Simulated assay, not measured.
Amino acid sequence: MTSRTTQFETLTVERIERVERITLNRPEDAHGVNLTLARELAVVARECDQDPEVRAVLLTATGRFFCAGGDLKEMAAHADRPGPFVKELADTLHRASSSFARMAAPLVVAVNGVAAGAGFSLAISGDLVLAAESAKFTAAYTRAGLSPDGGLTYALPRLVGLRRAQELILTNRLLTAPEAEAWGLVTRVVPDAELAEVALAAASDLAAGAAGSNAAVKSLLLSSYGNDFEAQIELEARTIAACAASPDGAEGREAFIAKRAPKFA
């Protein structure tokens, strides 16, 4: 296994084979999203989107918190212009969210602890979401007199339905990891001590798969929210034809016929 590590001010970014592992690194502030973290996350997300060597991305943190949401202390420091500052903060975070959603590589999120506010939005944005048994989830926005960002009002009702989304956002209900799994917010709950290993294994498995197929799945699922049925099935037909004509498609067919494991490029 080969790896390299890049240290930002608020993130640690490590390349492990073809997995880019991004670790939120503001433990003294519960990994809160300040403007620096949002900017660095946007930079890393864009790099993952543009680097064909990145075949899967793993987003996680350390300690008791995954991410406590927006940095309210930094917001308070801009009390003379709170609206423009928070708009800049949200726009910057959303550049990261958009890159993660539209990049070819699947995103695995490993939620190691409390995910609140923008941290909740980040936590549920993964293509796979693994949660430690001790993880907890809460919207927390209205408690601070704020409204959601980070794509929460897009993803949450699609995952849990409108009524549950309303309850979670308006009442700030705290969900345990097993409750979040039961509601469809996370893919799987794993013991705390196993989260890092299990998450890296999941990301590595995705990275070893057919990159074109993974990218196609992400793109098709994202487009399904805006397409009618006929448009979506036409897009499916065109996309599967392109996959079939690719080198990975040829390898997949040959491996199936030969009854062996495929070896994708």
Rank of each mutant, 00 (worst) to 15 (best):
A255S: 14
R39W: 09
L220E: 08
S223E: 14
R26K: 14
G113Y: 00
S134D: 10
G117Q: 05
S219D: 15
A182S: 15
L24E: 10
V217P: 01
I22Y: 02
A68E: 10
L37H: 07
T239G: 12
L93Y: 14
D91G: 03
D80S: 13
L156D: 02
D228S: 13
L37T: 06
V114L: 11
M103F: 09
V108I: 15
D248H: 12
A208W: 01
N112T: 15
N172Q: 12
A255H: 08
A76V: 07
T60W: 02
L93H: 14
I240Y: 15
T142L: 10
T12H: 05
E179S: 07
E167Y: 00
N25V: 01
W183M: 13
T92D: 07
A116I: 03
A42K: 02
P247A: 11
T62P: 04
G212Y: 05
T2Y: 08
A182F: 03
L35R: 09
P191S: 06
G212E: 14
A30G: 02
R173M: 07
R4I: 09
T60G: 04
E194V: 07
I257C: 10
Q232K: 01
A110K: 00
D71G: 01
E230Q: 14
C48P: 03
T5L: 12
S147W: 08
A231F: 02
T92N: 12
F120W: 09
S98C: 08
E251A: 15
A155F: 06
E181P: 02
